[in-house]
Design a protein around this nucleic acid. Sequence first.
RNA 1: GCUCUCGUAGCUCAGUUGGAUAGAGCGUUUGGCUACGAACCAAAAGGUCGCAGGUUCGAAUCCUGCCGGGGGCACCA
Length: 684
Amino acid sequence: MLLTLQRTIKTQLQVAVKKIFELELELADITAEYPPKTELGDLAFPIAFEIAKRLKASTGTKQNPRQLADKLRNELSTINGVSRVETAGAGYINFFLERGKVFDRLFKSEKSLKLDDISGGKLIVEHTSINPNKAAHIGHLRNAVLGDTIVRMLQASGETVEIHNYIDNTGVQVADVVVGFKYLEKKSLAEIEAIKERFDYYCWDLYAQVGKFYEENPENKKFRAQTLHEIEHNEGETALVAEHVSNRILKTHLDTMWRLGIAYDVLPRESDVLHLNFWQTAFEKLKEKGAIYFETEGKNKGCWVMRAEDRAENENTAQDETESQYEADKILVRSNGTVTYTGKDIAYHLWKLGQLGLDFEYRPFSTYPNGKIVWITTAKESAENRKDLGFGNGVAYFNVIDVGQSYPQAYVKLGVKLLSTDNRIDRSAHLAYEKVVLTPSSAKELGYELSEEDSKRTQVSMSGRKGLGVKADDLIDKSKEKVLAKINSNPDYSDVSLEEREDISQRIAVSGLRYFLLKYTRSSVIAFDFEEALAFQGETGVYLLYAVVRVNSMFRNLTEKGKSLKVNLTESQINDLFSLKDELTGWDGNYLWAIVYLASRLQDTLRLSINSLEPTHLAKYAYDLARSFSHFYAVKKEGKYIYKVIDETDSLRYQLLVALSDYVRRQLEQALWILTGVEPVEKM
RNA sequence: GCUCUCGUAGCUCAGUUGGAUAGAGCGUUUGGCUACGAACCAAAAGGUCGCAGGUUCGAAUCCUGCCGGGGGCACCA
């Protein structure tokens, strides 16, 4: 609603600028800001500065922005929802909203954050995509939490989203664990199947041992080559072991992620991409289009490549500001005729966008506790396979992959763009994020001996090969334990069942952990610290949850005491209450309006977060709103709470406080759900 | 060597397409529960926004150079 109002104002300004100054401004050129203080207004437009600049450019004479702002203001006619317009500072045009009208509409509007400029087609978000050969660690958690939050943001905005988790079940990493079972432990498939311990943890250790095995003697890598070959050609027990390992580990990954409220629609497997010859089809299309070149000389002689200059060109025409970052051409087909990962990924992405003309078959992989089925691609022929599920066929994709893969990802996008006719694909993006690393001290805390080189560094990369890292489930367990300990020591919980305590601590832990991974921008390296990750105080997801729980508890109290929750105020009554300043009780309408107005910006913040693909904006905003409400809750004058709803005797004021609290609660709950996937607990 | 990215309070980080007095959390100091929930609130101290130039009415933000951390530049994924 406020976004609509913003657009109305912008349009008016646009018309006025054209009339007075004969300048054509795009709506996108008119920026709206929130003034630093409510006394300055609700929306600010620094448009006069922009006009002054343009006038100077065209006429050569300098103009005073403040005077330009005054002229513009006088040209504006009345706008529904705006009470007055002022010029301020060096040349801002500030709009004051009609508080009664605006709040009345906000309060009565539906609980929805739908944006009006959505894609109008399915968006495909790929995230997690962990090698299925060992337990997930916190780096993987960052990926999944980012991906899942992007999914929730897009869904909240009204988009249709399909969630993929790509499974590289034929790669080196799976092969290495198979090498471990076969050559180090000399276990048969039956013996592996009989392993009772946590399989992902078991493989975590085994994988590290294989790493040592190769390090001790590089010749041992021949076992890897042999194993890879057998997996690729689906030969004997080796292939069956690989299948068992990847499926079993995959299941543990799904379980881990489900603990954080993260689920997937479909699991496309690399083996099936290969089996169905996706690449051959993509290869022909790329050749037809002239997108790839066969090199007859130079260092890439005998390879099919994509050219770096094609990428540079393409990005320029797409107005992509990031300049071509890589000089080298990208090889898709090696001189021995085999295809690289980038090649396979282009084929997979053409399928994602329905541009390949081939399709997978599916079988159910597992069912989530809520009944949702997750499907996996399959190459085994069976009458029970499903072909009618309609996966893929998106209009754009988002891939959550660490920043290290920017180079191949850029070529994946180039490849699909060259073959695509739908320009909505431009929206597609590689959501690059930085790693989660360990500080040397936290690595030591985990019991790892660091090499001399590593201990000199400021950060230590986690490494599956070295077995160095914090396992995702360990972190979740630790966090939950900490919460549970706090609950158990609190006498308020004496009548709460053990089950319920488990559930409460689970939700608190999840909100804390997810928020921790979201409060950093994607481009910031997270130096992992247990204390910080498990913190319950200050800017945390727990605080956010607490704010919601507390306001819910307030409403429960009101109901129990038989107070009415009905709000029946006229616009002018609301207006009066938001401008009232009562010295006696301390009631300050401006202050209350500032909270409501902050709460109303959820949708705008969601849009910002989606456009920049940065959930952190939403996270910070949600925290701000929670903080602002906590403050409201506790404002005192001479030792007495000013806005204690339950004690408010004036009927009009009481109703406004109820409406305000309810509105803030609604916004907070939506933000909490998007960021953490958690529904508020009854008590905490 | 080429290139990307980061450098903001003691620590960890936000800061939207350049906008009004650079913001949070933690930590430190001080104060507040016979409670609409203290996993909270209030107050204080703490900044040459890495350094040096430049563009602009206006720069943490854009440009140039330099310094420092971390990536990338595979016929690996």
